[in-house]
Amino acid sequence: MCATCGCDHDANVTITKTGETQYKPVKPANLLQIPSPSHHHLPVSKEIQLERDILHKNNLRAKHNREHFRSKHIFSVNLVSSPGSGKTSLLERTLRDLKNEMQFYVIEGDQQTMNDANRIAATGVTAVQINTGKGCHLDADMVHRAIHQLEPAENSVVFIENVGNLVCPAMFDLGENDRVAVISVTEGDDKPIKYPDMFASAELCIINKIDLLPYVNFNVEKAKEYALRVNPNLKFLELSVTSGEGMFYWYRWLKAKAFFCFSTQLQKAG
């Protein structure tokens, strides 16, 4: 499936490992061109009942990714948010603080530039950049291709930083273990009911930039109440990547989840 938004085709999607040159893949031959009409038969109309799920292809590929992660005991997180809520900064700090305890890999999704992957690479963690061109979300096929570039080791954590957008990424399962939605206190506290699908499909909601709370009109309790309306099972963490406040709880969540994935391997080995 094409991850297009507006007028593009997925031939414009590029996946680049940091340190490598970005390349534009050759546009595949258009398989959808109208074949020349058959002159052997007179046209006879025929109805075909299909009942085919439109997201079936994406979901199949997501299932494949999930199976890949599971077989290698990898914990994968799909980070979603609006642009500017601090996903990349959260990753940078997390990787710097925990890279000696766990092995990490990062898949970065943006419309353009290698900037985010380069920021991640500066922490010493291997990253690939998916540039979606005009696309507004990552899909399972892009992530599948990125996994093959990354080749993550067993018992590791793979972060997938989605394109900053609270609408479109909600629909596309990437095969991740958990979806984490990030909002920051510089946004409106009613984001969760304005963009309910994203919060309905998340496991955890991180409220970032809490060091700025004294200066902004953001009601944390109201934001949580709104988010719980769309997802009564949602969990919350309040933190500030800049000051470090609350990061301990994020690390505790991450380690608990990751070690649970790793432990299925230990149980088998034991």
């Binding site: 094409c2 297009t4 938004c5 959808l32 109208i34 074949p35 439109i54 079936h56 292809k57 899909d139």
Partner: peptide, 26 residues
């Protein structure tokens, strides 16, 4: 605007099915 992705998904499904039935028109 993920709707174009959805349309492309529909085109894929319909084209594959049409090809399978050797149809020249949907």
């Amino acid at each position: 605007m993920h709707e174009l992705s959805i349309v492309m998904g529909i085109v894929d499904i319909a084209s594959e099915e049409a090809k399978r039935h050797h149809a020249h028109k949907i």
